[in-house]
Design a protein around this nucleic acid. Structure first.
Length: 226
DNA sequence: AACCAGGACGTGA
DNA sequence: TCACGTCATGGT
């Protein structure tokens, strides 16, 4: 078994399935929260849910999910968490609603641009189409493809790089596409596996590779060799 | 009370 | 191509 797949199995055995992507739900008392759904890999119910996941991917750029959740709830309460809603609301109002997620000036503009593109979307998007939109870089594009459209496109984030650099599997200055290829060339092309692997790496890195606070020794270091 | 979070873009060399 | 500054709120 190759090392990349072995690491996945070690992570999967260590942590519970993570159930990304978190979706906005309301409980009995009509309070909203984003919830994870372990072992649920069903295709997004409808167009609105694919849109919600995409918007979340944009809003979470360099931002803690808790802050994104606040923004999503603000939009939902105004019935604006859908393509038409984002197109309808005026940009200043949009800025106000997504303010908790940070960078709200640029993110508001980018949500508008994305909603405009999404409204004309009639087929599965290509990666290059997404990358051509202002505000969507490689990680956001891959997140949208993988979680909103269930296309096996591996997501590489800062946590992934930190962990794999610590394990000696990539260089510190490895490019996004290099790391992406490393995973995709060593894994079966399975969107469920890609989703779970990415989420598990985030969970692992939060425990062992928080910036400037890597106190504990990564258990993977000893186990990946035998 | 600094430091950082599930990045991306514009600029200058 | 690429290093660097910028964008911004909220949690620890």
């Amino acid at each position: 078994m190759n090392k990349i797949l072995k690491i996945y199995k070690l992570l999967y055995d260590e942590y519970k399935p993570q159930g990304w992507w978190p979706i906005l739900m309301s409980n009995e008392s009509e309070e909203y929260a984003t919830l994870y759904h372990p072992n649920d890999f069903s295709y997004p119910k409808n167009r609105d849910q694919r849109f919600e996941i995409s918007i979340g991917a944009i809003l979470t750029q360099n931002t803690a999910w808790k802050n994104v959740e606040k923004a999503l709830i603000n939009l939902k309460k105004q019935d604006l968490l859908n393509c038409k809603g984002i197109l309808r609301v005026n940009e200043e109002k949009l800025k106000e609603l997504i303010r908790p997620s940070g960078y709200y000036n640029q993110k508001a503009e980018r949500l508008k641009i994305f909603a405009d593109w999404f409204s004309k979307l009639r087929k599965i998007p290509q990666r290059n189409e997404l990358l051509s939109l202002k505000g969507i870089g490689p990680e956001t594009a891959d997140s949208i493809l993988l979680y909103a459209f269930k296309i096996p496109s591996f997501v590489v984030d800062a946590y992934t790089k930190r962990t794999f650099y610590a394990l000696g599997l990539i260089k510190k200055d490895s490019k996004y596409e290099e790391v992406k290829h490393l995973f995709e060339q060593n894994l079966p092309k399975d969107f469920k596996l890609y989703q779970e692997y990415h989420a598990l790496l985030v969970e692992h890195a939060k425990r062992f590779y928080l910036k400037n606070k890597n106190s504990k020794e990564d258990f993977l270091k000893t186990k990946i060799h035998h």
